[in-house]
Computed example of a mutant assay.
Amino acid sequence: MAGLNSPTHDPSLAAARRGWLAARRRAATERSELAGQAAAEAAREAAPEPEFPSAGDLKAAAFFDLDNTVMQGAAIFHLCRGLYKRKFFRKRELARFAWQQAYFRMAGAEHSGHMRDARDSALSIVRGHRVSELMAIGEEIYDEYMAGRIWPGTRALAQAHLDAGQRVWLVTAAPVETATIIARRLGLTGALGTVAESVGGVYTGRLVGEPLHGPAKAVAVRALAEAEDLDLERCAAYSDSANDIPLLSLVGHPYAINPDKQLRAHAREMGWRLRDYRTGRKAARIGVPAAAGAGAVAGGAVAALAIQKRRR
């Protein structure tokens, strides 16, 4: 049995470890804050001035995760497929992306280690390329690999929010340039995404903060809501991943779409509504939450978009 003065029980070592862990947590929080603020700033700069119907609800908005919520699979993988086709990198690197995508599809959830690997691989590929070049190529890649992978059900939910006069934003760890293209093609307001550093319009191979993932998404949405004068209690958010629980917990109307096991359990515990497009089971209809007392949507539209809980 180890004595109290053994290295295992050395108080100074334990204190040093606690300090190291606390420093890591502070650094991670700072990176999340930086990533979220950068994403919100980039989203506001890229988004056009919204046009609202006369009955539009200016205080409400909807926030949609992208991978496996709006789109089947991971947007960054489809982006890399397109870049490989254009000889940005070699077969060995494509094989790594393919493995990461296979893991993502089999697990049905994100994993921080795989997200980090995908991020580092993508950054090494775009380093030295112009932002304008990647934007132009991204338009082509959307048509080639992404357009046919949009979940029609989630797309209809986003459109319902737009029809109700609400703004709709994508919130994703994918590059903000790719996310912005997808948002524009779907007719959405804009996108919050991972911001890669560029100098003089050329990518440096570094990120601003960290990927827009997990808590960073909540930071970005809160920053955007403050800048756009949104009432988060009147807003909705949709995601498939337990990693987005901080985002879903931020709004008054959270929804689990194609949820992973952990999110499904959490959503049921919290009474959140669910929808799953991946199975043959009959899914519940969920629609735009009617803002209490707002009169933002005509009475008939409110009835048509009534929320029904999923059968358990």
Rank of each mutant, 00 (worst) to 15 (best):
G3N: 15
D10W: 02
A23L: 13
A23I: 13
R25P: 01
R26I: 10
T29A: 12
T29Q: 14
T29M: 06
E30D: 14
L34W: 09
A39V: 10
E41W: 03
E45V: 14
A47R: 07
P48F: 09
P53I: 00
G56V: 15
K59N: 12
K59E: 12
F64N: 12
F64T: 14
D67A: 13
D67Y: 15
N68K: 00
N68A: 13
A74N: 05
F77D: 10
G82C: 09
F88L: 09
F89T: 06
F89M: 08
E93C: 08
L94F: 04
A102M: 02
M106V: 10
E110H: 14
G113Y: 11
M115A: 14
D117K: 11
D120Y: 08
S124N: 00
R130S: 05
E133M: 00
G138K: 08
Y142H: 05
D143E: 05
M146P: 01
W151L: 02
G153T: 08
G165E: 14
V176I: 02
T178I: 15
A179R: 00
I181R: 01
R184M: 11
G187Y: 11
G187S: 03
V199S: 11
G200C: 08
G205D: 12
G205H: 15
G205C: 10
P211F: 05
L212K: 01
H213F: 12
A220D: 12
A220P: 05
D229M: 13
L230E: 10
C235L: 01
A236V: 09
N243V: 00
S249T: 06
P254E: 12
Y255I: 13
I257P: 01
I257H: 06
N258R: 00
N258H: 00
N258M: 10
A265K: 01
A284P: 06
A284N: 06
R285F: 09
A294Q: 05
V302I: 06
